[in-house]
Nucleic acid binder design. Structure first.
Length: 612
RNA sequence: GCCCCCAUCGUCUAGCGGUCCAGGACGCCGCCCUUUCAAGGCGGUAGCACGGGUUCGAACCCCGUUGGGGGCACCA
């Protein structure tokens, strides 16, 4: 029952894919989206088994619980029949209003009952995240991973990670590790994939080279693929000769070459590429996030599946692996949407030769854009997940914000945990609009999560940042630990990212503070300041009870009552003297924790620095 | 050029024919609290791109326009 086992044959290979995450950019355009949404909601319910899956041996998807819905949806689905080509031609006419209502409420139909061969626990849903380990991890990529993970978790399905490392020139072991590390940091775990294994191993395409050749051979033998000898120049010349735009691409001219013709080409020394024969019907599918999407018959030319040198290409390898791994739901970046008709055609062919049991459902996620309407390119520093991590975004907060890029948990709420995301996530409710990455909002969400952390946890997370700045040991000494526990609650609500704590706490972990020039100019410039510092020092020098309360009382008495200063004028100089900055944790507490010795020393140092 | 996607406050969104003179959040602006900064509380600013339909009724359905974006490789 596992057709895939049979496929492991030879095949050079190296291609592969990577579903690009949604990237940046774009804007608005024509009306109509709304209906799609309604339609989509009615037609596509996430957890349903993939539409139509026919014979399916090993792939456990399908089986759903709602046969009726399935049949209904089948129309809109690709690869319904066995006719090799065909997407769901003609689909579209289904779903009446009634169905809509009926399917509208979100419930989760876990299609359990399947069980067999699958590893997936409670439902047949199998999602995958298949990045290429090149360079940095893009926020859009991580968002794609998050949604795939959430969809799998929400439906009780299986989340698969597959590494598409077939580009030796760009891939690196370092990025591979970094990628996995980033996923784990975000809090995503996978059921099958690298370092975890699984029934469909290996999960790194660089180790799956042999798998593709057999599939290509079968496709050729079954007539779904054919040898094509045309060069690009020849194709262009033919199009021009026919008065057509050369940009239309390949003209399917080699579809019916005779053996003699092929032999003649070979005699010339030409080696053919393998092209997939596209069906003559429209290719359409009901996108999980966009509703029906349709490409007219003939608008997509036969595409190359295997190069002349035997190397299979991404558009071929990616779907093949998805089929072999039983992927039922493909959530990927919007940029891959135009290639979906080709995948649908390929799936139909794969199904015909027994490699696939039906096409998966597709959900094309909107782009994540940067400032302006420009796309958030991998080159844009803002797209690099590492910078957020390094600044001290906490995974809970970052995941929360990422989820907000195209999805909403409720009308009046936007702060939630990753677990709550999994609990409530519904792909069909993902917006089709591109979403701009708003740093301010990301920070606000992060700050909220930071404040919600238990104090001890906050300390644990902030230590690496303080240690990195050389302020505390890692782990902290008992005394440092004591200070941190005491001051943490006060800084926790004053930071947006963990690294903010460094400057806020520096004064507490150094012997002498370096006074910020600007702060000094503002608070330590005149005779009033000198007067305040002297009075403060006098009041604290012999203070009996060195507690926050006692410190406050002493300073108020001396400065406010004694000197008649307004609180603002009274405490400003003291704050700068003690912390070196105009912004600091609450003064009295800070002084208590700093201790009498250092406090008095700083007051004296600041006094000496006051000009005049 | 061809194909496809998208279109509600500055930003992310809710909205699935009437309950919307459109709700939330971030941002921004006030006020309160206050030893700074935050946090918190209160209040405010700001939006259905346009034009036709359909309908008793449209932000929601249809068509078009305009405006964004993406894809058109023997790259992934």
């Amino acid at each position: 029952m596992d057709p895939r086992q049979g496929l492991r044959l030879l095949l050079p290979a190296r291609p592969v894919d990577r579903d690009r995450p949604a990237r940046p950019g774009q804007g608005p355009r024509r009306p109509r989206g709304h209906l799609h949404r309604g339609r989509r909601a009615a037609a596509v319910r996430p957890h349903q088994p993939a539409a139509v899956r026919r014979p399916d041996p090993g792939l456990a998807h399908l089986a759903g619980d709602d046969a009726a819905a399935r049949g209904r949806r089948a129309h809109g689905h690709p690869v319904g029949g066995r006719s090799p080509g065909t997407g769901a031609a003609g689909g579209g006419h289904d779903r009446g209003p009634g169905h809509a209502d009926q399917h509208r409420r979100r419930r989760r139909h876990h299609l359990d009952r399947r069980g067999r061969a699958m590893t997936s626990p409670t439902s047949g849903v199998r999602t995958r995240f298949c990045p290429s380990p090149t360079g940095t991890v893009h926020v859009g990529l991580l968002r794609t991973a998050l949604f795939n993970w959430a969809h799998a978790r929400h439906t009780g399905g299986t989340f698969v990670v597959r590494i598409e490392d077939t580009d030796a020139a760009r891939d690196s072991e370092e990025s591979y590790r970094h990628l996995l590390d980033s996923l784990r940091w975000l809090g995503l775990d996978w059921d099958e994939g690298p370092e975890v294994g699984g029934p469909h191993a290996p999960y790194r395409q660089s180790q799956r080279h042999e798998v593709y050749r057999d599939v290509a051979a079968k496709l050729l033998a079954a007539g779904h693929a054919y040898e094509s000898f045309s060069t690009n120049e020849e194709v262009e010349a033919r199009r021009l000769a026919a008065g057509q735009d050369p940009k239309l691409g390949y003209d399917n001219a080699d579809r019916f070459l005779t053996d003699e013709q092929k032999a003649a080409f070979r005699a010339e020394g030409r080696e053919p590429v393998l092209r997939l024969r596209m069906p003559d019907e429209d290719l359409a599918w009901t996108d999980l996030v966009r509703g029906e999407v349709r490409f007219a018959a003939g608008s997509v030319p036969d595409f190359v599946v295997v190069r002349a040198n035997g190397v299979p290409l991404y558009p071929f390898v990616n779907p093949v692996d998805d089929a072999l791994m039983g992927i039922t739901d493909v959530l990927r970046g919007e940029d891959l949407l135009p290639s979906t008709p080709r995948q649908l055609a390929l799936y139909a062919a794969l199904q015909d030769i027994g490699v696939a049991s039906g096409a998966p459902r597709f959900g094309h996620l909107p782009y994540v854009t940067g400032e302006g309407s420009k796309k958030l390119s991998k080159r844009d520093p803002q797209s690099n997940v590492d910078v957020y991590r390094q600044r001290g975004f906490v995974p809970e907060g970052f995941a929360n914000y990422l989820a907000l890029l195209g999805w909403a948990i409720a009308e009046d709420r936007d702060v939630f945990s990753t677990a709550e995301l999994a609990e409530a996530f519904d792909v069909t409710r993902v917006s089709a609009n591109p979403a701009r990455f708003d740093l301010k909002k990301a920070e606000a969400i992060n700050a909220t999560h930071l404040r919600a952390l238990p104090v001890g946890e906050f300390v644990t997370r902030v230590v690496p940042f303080l240690a990195g700045a050389g302020l505390v040991a890692d782990p902290p000494t008992p005394e440092q630990e004591r200070l941190l526990r005491a001051i943490a609650p006060l800084v926790q609500e004053r930071v947006v990212v963990l690294s903010d704590a460094v400057e806020l706490l520096r004064f507490l972990f150094v012997e002498d503070v370096e006074i910020d020039p600007a702060a000094a100019a503002k608070q330590l410039s005149g005779p009033e300041a000198a007067e305040v510092l002297d009075a403060a020092a006098a009041a604290l020098r012999d203070l009996g009870d060195w507690t926050t309360e006692a410190v406050e009382a002493a300073l108020r008495t001396a400065l406010v009552d004694g000197l008649g200063r307004k609180p603002r004028q009274a405490f400003g100089p003291v704050r700068v003297a003690v912390s070196g900055r105009t912004v600091s944790p609450p003064l009295y507490e800070s002084i208590e924790l700093l201790g009498r010795e250092r406090t008095l020393a700083r007051l004296a140092a600041a006094r000496a620095a006051v000009p005049g």
